[in-house]
């Protein structure tokens, strides 16, 4: 079976199943399912501008965090901390953008991106060290680091990084030089999306075409076999997965600031780092499929806005439908596995 196509088909089937359930619920709630879904599609794909400016813009942070999670999970590193790494990256990027006394985009952009990646990696390094040195499970540590990052962000935007007027809990707007240029004229789609695609392709090439990627997959499949049959230590590979994953998640945070919001504030992310887990799992941890699943989630989110605006569906419903999608995906995914795995061996 074509391994890249499978997740795409899975996503489609899950979506269809969800839409059926959602339609029934919407009808019960007094909304016309047809009008609601038309609004959803219009919101996500209605015009080129909506697709680029809404769907893809919303997909960008999910794409980057989804890639971060996919890479880590591939190495059996259960990084639940993309949310915190995202905040760390955003803070570092903003700090460098505001404090750096240089105004050439050619210098500022690489410097801020590097700072964000480094901060994300640093945030992941703590759980990495605890796992490799002390054997502390990363599920707990990465999760706890999220809270630390979110509180740190709150503190910084109320204090050291607060806008000079000191009125609102947010940073100043970042200088023009630090903002990501538009990817397409007259859209809000910024360079960050392209960067996400580039990282996706790079990760895919790395995982499937290089010895290092093979080692990473091997550690993910069986650390013991990697050591005995592959004759290499799992530790450095685990570190690499942690740091790279953290760096990509860190980029996600700064790219959101540099491409969309242009300043940092409390509650920058509505939980992208967690949604990313669904994005990555739905893509079966394949980086190229993550591009697709991130766009699906972005479309759902953008369409959700239109469902409110045009069909009067409350926000809670929109979130409920998103949750339905994830459930449906897991169900469909599982049943496919059962269907495909009927055989046995002698």
């Amino acid at each position: 079976m074509n391994r890249t196509l499978t997740p795409v088909l899975t996503a489609t089937a899950a979506l269809a199943a969800t839409l059926a359930v959602a339609a029934a619920l919407l009808a019960l709630g007094g909304h016309s399912p047809g009008a609601v879904f038309a609004a959803l599609l219009r919101g996500a794909f209605g015009t080129w501008d909506r697709f680029f400016s809404f769907t893809l813009v919303r997909a960008t942070p999910l794409l980057l965090t989804g890639l971060a999670v996919a890479l880590a999970f591939k190495a059996r590193v259960w990084n639940i901390g993309a949310e915190g790494q995202l905040h760390a990256g955003a803070l570092a990027g903003v700090a460098v953008a505001i404090l750096l006394p240089v105004h050439s985009p050619l210098l500022v952009l690489p410097a801020t991106l590097a700072a964000a990646a480094a901060a994300g990696a640093l945030w992941a390094a703590v759980p990495a060290a605890m796992k490799t040195r002390m054997g502390v499970g990363e599920v707990i540590t990465t999760l706890l680091m999220n809270f630390v990052a979110v509180f740190l962000a709150q503190f910084l935007v109320q204090g050291p990084l607060q806008e000079p007027r000191g009125v609102f809990n947010q940073t100043d707007e970042i200088p023009l030089a630090a903002r990501l240029p538009a990817l397409l004229p007259d859209t809000r789609l910024h360079l960050g999306f392209l960067l996400g695609i580039v990282i996706a392709v790079a990760l895919w090439l790395y995982l499937t075409r290089t010895p290092g990627g093979f080692r990473l997959r091997a550690v993910g499949a069986s650390p013991r076999a990697a050591e005995v049959s592959g004759r290499f230590r799992a530790g450095p590979v685990v570190w690499l997965a942690f740091l790279t994953s953290g760096a990509i998640a860190g980029l996600a945070g700064w790219i959101q600031v540099a491409g969309v919001t242009h300043r940092m504030y409390e509650g920058l992310s509505p939980g992208w780092g967690y949604t990313a887990i669904a994005v990555a799992l739905l893509a079966r941890l394949n980086p190229l499929a993550v591009v697709v699943t991130a766009i699906v989630f972005g479309a759902l989110s953008a369409g959700g806005g239109a469902m409110q605006r045009e069909a009067g569906v409350p926000e809670v419903w929109v979130r409920g439908i998103e949750a339905l999608v994830i459930l449906a995906v897991l169900t469909v995914d599982r049943s496919w596995q059962v269907l495909a795995g009927g055989g046995s061996r002698d």
Partner: peptide, 21 residues
């Protein structure tokens, strides 16, 4: 089962364990 092979890997990938370096 645990050390000599990765069951989810293809034969090619399992052979690659000796060649990746």
């Amino acid at each position: 089962g645990e050390e000599g092979l990765v069951n989810d890997f293809t034969i090619i990938e399992n052979v690659a364990f000796a060649l990746h370096g």
